[in-house]
Amino acid sequence: MKIMKWILMAVLMVSSCSRDKNVVVVYTSEDQQFSQPVLKDFEKETGIQVKALYDTEETKSTGILNRLIAEKNNPQADVFWSGDPMRSILLKRKGITASYTPKNAQNIPKLFKDKEGHYTGFSARVRALIYNKNLLSKDQLPKSILELTDPKWKNKVAIANPLFGTTSFHIAALFIVMGDEKAKDYLLKLKANGLHILKSNGDVRRKVASGQIPIGFTDSDDINVALLDHKSVGFIYPDENGIGTLVMPNTVSLIKGSPNNQNAKLLIDYLISKKVELKLAQMECAQIPLLAGVHGPKGVLSIQSIQSMKIDYEAAAIKLTEILGFLKQWIED
């Protein structure tokens, strides 16, 4: 009987995660090591308990995005903090987000926020090329990603699976700036040139850092992590004089019918602030502040210094749904 009592007590403990009053529930695809400290600061400053669900690109963002879709009719989350705009746009198109304009939204460039207030961008990453310094010297580096179809790069380039994560966003953006035919032709040539399709951006970073592959497409935060880990890698922002570099802001959205609506708005306002942008710029992810007048520490680029790819993010999100079939075929062939 004693054992049964203990088991019953343990079950009660498990089930004691009941709903508290002063909480905000946030689902985030921003990596936990970067988002958690920000959310902890918010807790300390406001006294509002943050209940977070973390995800990572490594899981193909399977967890929270699909969970938000599945929870549409009975939302549990208040806020969705996405690592890129594509997921927020997808949720907007599925009618899962609500309109909310944060206090500081007017100081965010138009390109990085939704006209109807379904998402607002902040602290950005960029798509870049990571290379192994032991295998490539600076004068060997390409200036444009278009050069990577050249035979001299045969079997030397890696990219993450384009069906998932920021790589899918990057490819969709290329379709927008280059046009469907040219983009398809580019991808086919890239594949014919022995492109390595890996499972994630983190995998691209690891394989390049270990010297298995000389160069690869990845995100700026991945590169910075490798640099801080003293890996012999360098990076370039390609196409500075051409189509530009893809800038990918974090985005934050209010969930329609969220249970803790007021706290959600407080958290969104907090995220779109100078303080958070500075914090994310100072962390290992070295994200680029987007608010006017916010400058990151030395070594972190300013948004003005980047020749960013001029694309409509919503158009890229729609384009992605159109090209998914092609991309799947491209990987399988």
């Binding site: 995660c17 990596d31 936990q32 090591q33 970067f34 943050v50 973390y54 990572t56 967890g63 983190g202």
Partner: peptide, 22 residues
């Protein structure tokens, strides 16, 4: 990873979500 309640993480989930960029 698909069903854990907000604010409740297990150690393997933490390892998994930290593995990408830590």
């Amino acid at each position: 990873i698909f069903i854990y309640p907000p604010g409740f993480q297990t150690l393997p989930i933490k390892i998994f979500t930290m593995a990408a960029n830590s």
